[in-house]
Structure formats: C-alpha cells, structure tokens
Amino acid sequence: MENKTESIFTDYLVRAITRDGSIRALACVTTGLVADASRRHGTWPTASAALGRGLTAGALMGALLKTGQRVALRFEGNGPLKRVLVEADSNGAVRGGVGNPEVSSVRDDGKLDVGGALGQAGLLTVTKDLGLKEPYTGTVILYTSEIAEDLAYYLTESEQVPSAVGLGTYVEADGSISAAGGFLIQSLPPGNEELVERLMARIEGMPPVTELLRRGVTPEGLLEYLFEGIPFNTLEKRALAFVCSCSRERIERVLVSLGKDDLAALIDEQGGAEVTCELCRERYRFDRGELERLLAGLSAH
C-alpha cells in the first residue's frame, strides 16, 4: 500500500511519541478516502461530515493495533442519520457507511450539525478483533455525538487511557470533500502532567483541523503544531485508503448461511438475488442458476 501515499489525494498517517515516552500522538489526512466513501454512499453534506469524521477515527484507531488486528466503531443515535459504522485494520485499510445518507442539517452558526444528525441519545460501541477466541467489545453512551469527543470519552473511560481527539471534514458548497483528517493524543503511564497541560492548552487554542489542512498543513505539520516546544520522535508513516473486505465469495457464504428453505424460497419468489455491501455499496448479483448451484451444494452437504 505504500505507493498510495503518492496518489492524487496523498492519504497517510504519522505516528510519533515524545522523547520522554509519556505521550503518543497520531495525525493523518484522509481527504481522498473520505471523498471516495462519500461518492460511494451518495451522502448529503452533514452525512458526509459525519462519515468523514468516523472514517478518520477508524484510521487512527487502526494505527494503534498490531499486525492482523481489526477494529469496528459503531456510533448509533436517535437522530435522522441513525448511525455511523466504520471498520479499519492495522494496515491502513478503512471502510464505512451511515444509516441514512440523505441528511443535511445546519446549526445556527452555519456549521453542519453532525451532533444533531446523529442524535443526543445513543451509544458508541468499539469492537476489536485481536486474534483471540472472542473479540473485545466496549460500549459508552454518546458524550456529545460530535464523533471526536465521543471517541476521546470512550478511550478515557473504557480503556482508561487519557486521550484527546480532533477530527474534521470540510464539505464544499457543491458537496465535494476538500479536506479531511485528524489527530489522536494519549497520555502514557506514568504520565507527565506538565506536558499534558501544555498540550491541552495548545489544543484548546488551535484552529479547526480542516482549516489547517486547507492551508496545506500535513500530518507532520499537525504534530509539529501540537508539540510546539516539546521534543518528539516520528515512529512511522503509513498509507491510508478506502478498502472493503467484501467479496463475491463472502456474499455467497452469507447466502448459504440462510439455509436450504430460505434459499429455495428466494429462488422461487425472486428468481435471483442482489446483495449490497453496507460499507462500500458494492452490488453483487446472483441469477437463478447461481442460486440453484448454491442450493445444490447445501443439499449435497
């Protein structure tokens, strides 16, 4: 995936740590993959902003995993957007979608109302596939429904790692995505209260992430801005891309899992099937002959 950092959108993530080892930080630009996802899902402006924040959050969380591990984030609220569902892995692959793409609401200050679209009552569920027998799952209530604050709240409360998160997606008047990205900062034990206070003051006074990205600030530049006057080392730079794990073979297994009776009823009633992936909107069509082949395999088994 390394060559993807040289694409037109140059989506990538940088991971760093302070020289005293007390704070780790990640920063990324995700403009290309968010634009790809918004196009696939046909999202309206507010839905695009929410999806962009969710995908960026997934990219940041994925970078905390070990090789071969995966994470899923599910922000589910009582607003018209319904939910934001994102999956990411340790290799920089991110995918996701929203419950209702046709949402465009604006706050009184003229900004897109992501919190209102998601709803003020709901849950954030984080599921990690760490290669063990059972996945790890943690759930917290939606703190503000603004995505970034919810993720920081989850990491601080559920995983007991004090965290600050900044996410942004800039949607142009024509609905296109001109900037997306974010950062994640975490305090590591035993901690350094002085550095934490300096960083929090820096974060509180910084412009919106998308404003910096639209100025041309890179992930490296974001880290330099945040860590002004604080020595740190860059650990890694990795490419990011919208990549879905769905395939025709996987969808076939889903159809087979319906069982003989339901599969036979599908053939009789519809004479075929069309399945759309929730995360990338790829459509898989199966004609009568293909469904009968699956049914024959079930019967033989």
Rank of each mutant, 00 (worst) to 15 (best):
V165L: 03
G166K: 07
G166H: 03
L167K: 04
T169Q: 15
Y170W: 14
Y170K: 09
Y170C: 10
V171I: 14
A173H: 04
D174I: 00
D174W: 06
D174P: 00
S176C: 05
S176R: 14
I177A: 09
I177Y: 06
A179L: 12
A179F: 06
A180V: 09
G182M: 06
G182P: 06
G182F: 04
L184G: 06
L184R: 03
L188Y: 04
L188G: 11
P189Y: 03
P189C: 02
P190F: 02
P190L: 01
G191K: 10
N192D: 10
E194C: 00
L195C: 02
R198N: 07
L199N: 04
M200T: 10
R202A: 10
I203C: 12
I203W: 08
M206L: 07
P207T: 12
P207N: 10
E211L: 03
L213C: 12
L213D: 09
R214I: 00
V217H: 03
V217M: 11
V217S: 02
E220D: 15
G221M: 12
G221V: 05
L223H: 05
E224F: 02
E224G: 01
E224H: 11
F227L: 15
G229R: 13
I230S: 01
E236A: 11
R238M: 15
R238D: 07
A239N: 03
L240M: 09
L240T: 04
L240I: 12
A241D: 08
F242L: 11
C244P: 10
C244R: 03
S245W: 04
S245K: 05
S245I: 02
C246H: 04
C246Q: 07
S247N: 09
R248C: 11
R250N: 09
I251N: 06
E252F: 01
V254R: 12
S257R: 07
L258Y: 13
K260C: 02
K260N: 03
D262K: 15
D262R: 15
D262C: 00
D262Y: 12
L263V: 08
L266T: 13
